[in-house]
C-alpha cells in the first residue's frame, strides 16, 4: 500500500525510462512486479517507472549460456525447460521456492536482485553460476559480475540505473572443464516453510575429475551477511581433495566461520550460523550423490 504515490509511468523504451527516473530524482523508483515495493512502502517513493513494457521478459540461449531479462518472472524461470536443465536446474529450483504462486506470477528476477535483500533466493544460485548483470545508465550500458553488484543490505551498484539483464556464462568455460570431469549443482533453502523468506539459503556446484578429486567448487550462502556471499575459503578447502564426507565437513566449518549473520524475528545469530553449515553440507552431499558413478 502506497497512499502517497503520485504518478505512474509506463515507458516503452529504455532511454525514456532513464529520462523519467532522472527527472523524478529521489522521488522516483523503478517498479516491476511490485511484490517488494508495495510491502516496503517507502514514503519517499512518489513516482513509479514501470519496467514491464521494455521488452525485458525473456530467457534466451546465449553462447552456450543464457541471457535472462530483468522483467522475467519467477514463474517463467521455474517453468523454463532451459532453466530446468541448466546446471542441475538450480535457478529454476530457487525461483520455484521464492514465495507462493501468487507472488511468483508477479515477482521478477530483476526485482529480486535490485531489492538486494540478503535473503534473496535467486542470489546464491546466480553467484555460483558466476552470473553477470547488464545495467543501463545515463552514460550507457555497463556489465559487472553479480558479486560486485551487491553493496550492502538493500544497496546495489545500480544508483538509480536500470537493471536490464542477467547473463549466465557457459558452464564449461567458466569451470575450465576438462576431459573426464563430472559436475553437479544444488540449491538449498531453509524457511519456516519453503515459500517463506529464507532463514538461510545456499547454492553449490562442484567439478570432480575421473579420480574423484575436486577440481573446482563454488559455494554461496544468503541471509547470513549483509549481502549474499560466495565463500572462497570454503571453495578452496575442497579444491584438490577427494570430495567425501571429510572434505565436505571441512568446507562447512569454514562456511560457519565466515558467516556474519544477525538475529531477527526469523532466527538467531547462532542458529543462522550453524544452519549455514548444515545447508552447505546438504548442498555438497546432493552434489556428491549427483556425480557418483553409477554402481553396477
Amino acid at each position: 500500500m502506497m497512499p502517497w504515490l503520485e504518478a505512474f509511468h509506463r515507458p516503452t523504451t529504455i532511454a525514456e525510462a532513464l529520462r523519467l527516473m532522472k527527472r523524478g530524482g529521489r522521488r522516483a523508483r523503478f517498479v516491476a512486479g511490485a511484490t517488494d515495493l508495495l510491502v516496503e512502502a517507502d514514503p519517499a517513493a512518489r513516482i513509479l517507472v514501470d519496467v514491464g513494457r521494455l521488452g525485458l521478459a525473456y530467457i534466451k540461449p546465449h553462447r552456450g549460456g543464457w541471457r535472462i531479462g530483468a522483467a522475467t518472472t519467477m514463474a517463467m524461470l521455474e517453468q523454463s525447460e532451459g532453466m530446468r536443465a541448466f546446471a542441475g536446474g538450480i535457478l529454476a529450483r530457487a525461483a520455484a521456492a521464492s514465495g507462493s504462486i501468487q507472488i511468483r506470477n508477479r515477482a521478477t528476477a530483476g526485482g529480486n536482485l535490485a531489492n538486494a535483500s540478503p535473503a534473496a533466493d535467486l542470489a546464491p544460485p546466480l553467484l555460483v553460476l558466476d552470473a553477470q548483470v547488464v545495467i543501463a545508465g545515463q552514460k550507457g550500458k555497463r556489465r559487472l559480475p553479480l558479486a560486485d553488484f551487491f553493496k550492502g543490505v538493500c544497496q546495489t551498484a545500480l544508483k538509480g540505473d536500470l537493471l536490464m539483464e542477467i547473463i549466465l556464462p557457459p558452464l564449461n568455460r567458466a569451470a575450465g572443464r576438462r576431459g573426464g570431469e563430472r559436475s553437479a549443482w544444488s540449491f538449498q533453502k531453509l524457511g519456516r516453510v519453503e515459500s517463506d523468506i529464507a532463514i538461510v539459503n545456499a547454492a553449490a556446484g562442484v567439478g570432480v575429475d575421473a579420480g574423484g578429486r575436486c577440481r573446482w567448487a563454488r559455494i554461496a550462502v544468503g541471509a547470513v551477511a549483509p549481502t549474499p556471499l560466495r565463500i572462497a575459503a570454503a571453495e578452496s578447502a575442497l579444491q584438490g581433495r577427494p570430495l567425501d564426507s571429510e572434505s565436505i565437513a571441512l568446507a562447512c566449518e569454514t562456511v560457519c566461520r565466515e558467516a556474519r549473520p544477525i538475529t531477527d524475528l526469523r532466527a538467531s545469530v547462532d542458529y543462522r550460523r550453524q544452519m549455514s553449515g548444515v545447508l552447505v553440507r546438504r548442498a555438497l552431499e546432493e552434489c556428491l550423490a549427483g556425480i557418483e558413478p553409477p554402481r553396477h
Binding site: M1, A34, L38, D50, A75, Q102, N105, R106
Partner: peptide, 25 residues
C-alpha cells in the same frame, strides 16, 4: 501485503494477489 491470499484473483490466467497489483497495471 501479499501474505494471506484472501484477495486472490485470476489475472490473465494466473493467480495473483489483488492487493499487490495496482489497478493501472
Amino acid at each position: 501485503r501479499g501474505t494471506c491470499g484472501t484477495c486472490t484473483v485470476i489475472m490473465g490466467g494466473d493467480a495473483v494477489y489483488a492487493c499487490q497489483v495496482l489497478a493501472i497495471e
